[in-house]
Computed example of a mutant assay.
Amino acid sequence: MTSPARRSFERKMAAKAGNSAQRPGALASPESGPAATAYQLKLAALGNDLRQLSNTQSLETKIALKRGMIDTYRPWIEGALRSEKPAQDEIVGTMLVWAIDIAEWPLALDLARHVLAHGLALPERYRRTPATLIAEQVAEAGIGADPTVDLATLQQVDALTEGADMPDEVRAKVKKAIGLAFKARADTFDPTAESGMAGGRSALIAAAIANLTRAVALDDKCGVKKIITSLEAEAKRLAADAIKDAAKAEGAAA
């Protein structure tokens, strides 16, 4: 386990790396000095970890390994996030992807904001722009058989990447994941809960329909048309029930 002194040192070096790496008109990694040395040491450790992951075939095992490995890089991440002038940093970019992979959403969101706000690139092996990768991988965590991402995180990712250029199919995945998350809330809606959405189950269904409809507009083959039809039928039923209940209440009051 890394000592507290070592963790503190790495935080300071990561923060300094940004300030010492600036070049006119571009972001660059540090080339000399203590920060550069510390960065190269972390990159060497990352290279070893990436080779171990590459030699592992089981996805489940890879996720477990990343959960253990990521702690080694937390001090560096914390320092990089504090940097006044962030530099191009392969460690930060890799840990962003790992945080998404292991569903550590608070860390993933912090790193996503950092990378997007400062125009940092991801390591070349990921072959996508940061916004596209963030949007797609987080969305995919919400559209599987067992979603691992919450609605609030999906909405934050949608907002963070809103103005970014990406394939329509990727944006459709985000809207689909948000729509399915609203549907899941509607399916388990408890009208007695204080945290319930204003407007109740009808509002949740309406939000689900709106997001799923947007997904279809972006990608006609995104696979949610039957879900929309079912939700629209349920919305009509709830509206009819609300009219009946209002009529009964009015009759009772008379």
Score class of each variant (00 low, 15 high):
Thr37Arg: 02
Glu140Pro: 01
Thr148Ala: 14
Glu90Ala: 11
Leu27Glu: 02
Asn55Arg: 04
Ala145Phe: 15
Arg125Met: 04
Leu122Ser: 03
Ser58Asp: 15
Ala44Gln: 06
Glu124Ile: 13
Pro106Thr: 08
Ile63Leu: 14
Asp89Ser: 00
Ile77Tyr: 04
Pro86Tyr: 11
Ala87Thr: 08
Leu116His: 07
Leu43Trp: 00
Val149Lys: 03
Thr37His: 03
Glu90Met: 06
Pro86Ser: 08
Thr37Asp: 05
Ala28Phe: 02
Gln52Arg: 10
Thr129Met: 05
Ile102Asn: 02
Gly93Glu: 09
Ile100Ala: 10
Ala87Asp: 03
Val92Asn: 04
Trp105Glu: 10
Trp98Asn: 01
Met95Thr: 14
Lys85His: 13
Asp101Trp: 13
Ala141Arg: 15
Met95Val: 14
Leu151Ile: 10
Lys66Trp: 06
Leu41Tyr: 00
Glu60His: 08
Ala38Ser: 15
Glu136Ala: 15
Thr37Phe: 06
Arg125Glu: 02
Ala99Gln: 05
Ala145Val: 15
Ala99Cys: 09
Ala36Asp: 11
Gly68Asn: 13
Lys42His: 08
Val92Arg: 00
Arg113Asp: 05
Asp101Ile: 10
Leu151Ala: 04
Leu50Asn: 11
Ala108Val: 09
Gly93Gln: 07
Ser58Trp: 12
Leu96Ala: 09
Glu90Val: 01
Leu116Trp: 11
Gln52Met: 12
Ser54Cys: 10
Leu111His: 04
Leu46Asp: 00
Glu31Gln: 14
Ala45Ser: 12
Lys66Val: 10
Glu84Phe: 11
Tyr73Met: 01
Gly144Glu: 12
Gly144Lys: 10
Arg82Cys: 09
Val92Gln: 01
Pro106Arg: 05
Asn55His: 06
Ser58Pro: 12
Thr72His: 11
Ser54His: 10
Arg74Val: 12
Glu140Ser: 03
Leu120Trp: 04
Ser83Cys: 09
Leu46Met: 03
His118Asn: 15
Asn48Arg: 12
Asp110Trp: 05
Thr148Leu: 15
Gly142Leu: 00
Ala131Gly: 06
Pro123Tyr: 01
Lys62Gln: 15
Ala45Lys: 04
Glu60Thr: 14
Trp76Lys: 05
Thr56His: 09
Gln40Asn: 08
Asp89Asn: 02
Ala44Asn: 12
Ser83Val: 04
Pro34Leu: 05
